[in-house]
């Protein structure tokens, strides 16, 4: 093999070729993989804000079209100083919490019923399919007549809006539970109740939680819409008022609050997932 040394092929081979004419197998397995890079998101976000601020200061972005982030921050500061922030925020958050939790609890119950009982499935699943696609905000006038112009109609909109996606997530979660596990429960003589609470519910939990993620975003959208239609306090009312006065700095401040609420809700659900589904990895 010593002749290899003299042969041009060996000398010009790309990867280092050793005396015996061996070279390492070229690596081809890179890419197509997600590595968590937590710092990239905030950096991009901060960069965009900075560009925006610079654009406003240099006059590239007209203040009539879009106020600078610093102005929006100023509007937010005013809101805090006058105490109105808390007023709007508490109105919105209490509606959100109440509507979302009632809708989710009812949704899980009905979803379980549909998942467990053939009668409930035949009776309710066509109804769910019929009601799910209706934009619930269209029913607000009806809810105002039924539950009054106050909190009732707004909460009812949220309850309705979160109920249907939760029902669907829950019963498809129940349908997805491994039949073999249920059969195992039966073969050990577990009570019906135990099979439901210890096998079916935990098995459906991942689906229920991803349903909760979706229904939470739906709830925020409906909340703002309902508050824009008729509310004295609340982020929706605040944004609407800012918009009609062309107080764009206030409008941006309000929208930023919404985005923060959305982020916090997503973070809370993420935490719940990590805590409740710790068995998954």
């Amino acid at each position: 093999m010593s002749t290899d040394l003299a042969s041009p092929a060996a000398q010009h081979a790309e990867p280092a070729t050793d005396l015996a004419g061996r070279r390492e197998v070229p690596f081809r397995g890179g890419g197509f993989r997600h590595r968590p890079m937590w710092y990239v998101g905030p950096v991009v976000f901060a960069g965009l804000l900075l560009l925006w601020e610079l654009g406003s200061r240099s006059g590239v972005i007209s203040p009539i079209a879009l106020p600078a982030p610093s102005e929006a921050l100023g509007a937010l500061g005013d809101l805090v100083e006058t105490g109105m922030l808390w007023r709007h925020l508490s109105a919105s958050l209490s509606r959100l919490a109440l509507g979302w939790s009632i809708g989710t609890c009812l949704g899980i119950l009905v979803g379980l019923a549909i998942g467990l009982f053939a009668v409930a499935r035949s009776a309710l699943s066509p109804l769910v399919s019929a009601f799910f696609p209706i934009p619930k905000i269209a029913l607000l006038p009806l809810f105002i007549i039924w539950f009054g112009i106050g909190e009732g109609s707004k909460v009812a909109t949220l309850v309705f809006g979160t109920f249907f996606p939760t029902v669907i997530a829950t019963y498809s979660g129940v349908d997805g539970v491994d039949r073999n596990l249920i059969r195992m429960g039966q073969s050990f003589g577990l009570k019906w109740r135990s099979i439901v609470t210890k096998i079916i519910l935990p098995g459906a939990l991942p689906a229920i939680l991803s349903g909760a993620r979706i229904s939470a975003s739906i709830a925020i959208i409906l909340l703002i819409a309902a508050e824009m239609i008729g509310a004295e306090y609340g982020l929706g009312a605040y944004i609407l008022m800012a918009g009609s006065l062309f107080a764009l700095d206030q409008l941006i401040a309000g929208v930023a609050m919404l985005s923060i609420i959305g982020l916090i809700v997503a973070w809370l659900i993420g935490r719940a997932e990590r805590k409740l589904l710790d068995w998954r990895l």
Partner: peptide
């Protein structure tokens, strides 16, 4: 069972306790 049929959300001990609880 051939596929073990363990509950993935219960520990080894929890899987044994499951059949005793009732």
């Amino acid at each position: 069972f051939q596929d073990f049929a363990l509950l993935p959300w219960r520990t080894v001990e929890g899987n044994v306790r499951l059949v005793l609880d009732d």
